[in-house]
Design a binder for these strands. Structure first.
Ligand SMILES: [Mn+2]
Ligand SMILES: [Mn+2]
Ligand SMILES: [Zn+2]
Ligand SMILES: [Zn+2]
Lengths: 143, 143
DNA sequence: GGCTAAATGCAACACTATTGCAATTAGCTA
DNA sequence: TAGCTAATTGCAATAGTGTTGCATTTAGCC
């Protein structure tokens, strides 16, 4: 919720500005990754102009506070929708409709850590992005 | 090995050109992800000029044949060092020295598929990149 | 309402990636 | 081995993405 994010921003000493509210609103209402220019376009279509530099800076800030994430497979940004798991970043992306779902699982992290340790690697951070079909698209696809 | 990659290229009807050999040599001899411009710079330092467009096209080709991979967390490219696992792309990246190691594990894929299925998601492709410390750097770090 | 640090907008720039086309070349054939 | 031709490369132009410094504006505080 936008209001929650604003509260977190302010709790960390950041201002609740018009541009920040607008970006948060856009992220809040879409379930697909959006580039900075996507966000600018959506807002422009509503008659709300933001400079792209401002959008970059806002997205940086939101990511630094874990209020948004950059999805690496597409380069777009999504709102954070989980109480964040330290050192873990996981998404499922539907390759048909583009919908994205954040998830987390301690068990998966442990399996991965152990697997890596067996190869002599000490894991600090897990990135994992699955692509496939969301339940809605999978159902459609079946008949 | 560069020679193997060249053979695969030719088997698919692609020519074994000087630029392709040069890019393959560079990828072969480094264990870190390299951007197209990194590759151009390395070659230029050896007195071998390639246009950046050519490098982009070669990397596209190599990726399409699974002879190289794009590492999403850094945007760089590495040679493929595994018999490729269908629909699975995994790397461990050392955050100290930048070394990268490709890996794969059927068990991990199955765990992930199952986890996703429980959330109604049908997984087609797994991307996972761990960052942490390679065994060498981890040892150094300890004392 | 005024003050001030923080945030935004702007302009310029740097870097990354793509396109169309002319020139070159690898691999085939004679 | 020389010539042929499709594939590949280089080049120029352009588009897209991301960054910086600085003047202006604004949120939050008194
Ligand atoms: Mn999150
Ligand atoms: Mn591979
Ligand atoms: Zn879908
Ligand atoms: Zn290392």
């Amino acid at each position: 919720m936008v209001r929650d994010s604003i509260r977190i921003l302010q709790a960390q000493g950041h201002k609740a500005t018009r541009p920040r509210k607008l970006v948060l609103e856009v992220l809040e209402e879409t379930e697909k990754p959006l580039s900075p220019y996507d966000i600018q376009g959506i807002l422009r279509a509503r008659g709300k102009y933001l400079n792209h530099v401002t959008i970059y800076r806002i997205l940086d800030l939101l990511c630094s506070l874990n209020l948004a994430h950059k999805v690496l497979s597409s380069g777009g940004f999504v709102k954070c929708s989980l109480d964040d798991i330290e050192g873990c970043h996981r998404f499922m992306v539907c390759q048909h409709c583009g919908a994205i779902q954040e998830f987390a699982d301690k068990g998966l992290c442990q399996e991965e850590n152990e697997f890596a340790r067996n190869l002599g690697f000490h894991t600090e951070y897990h990135l994992s992005e699955f692509s496939g079909l969301c339940s809605r698209c999978y159902r459609k696809w079946l008949h």
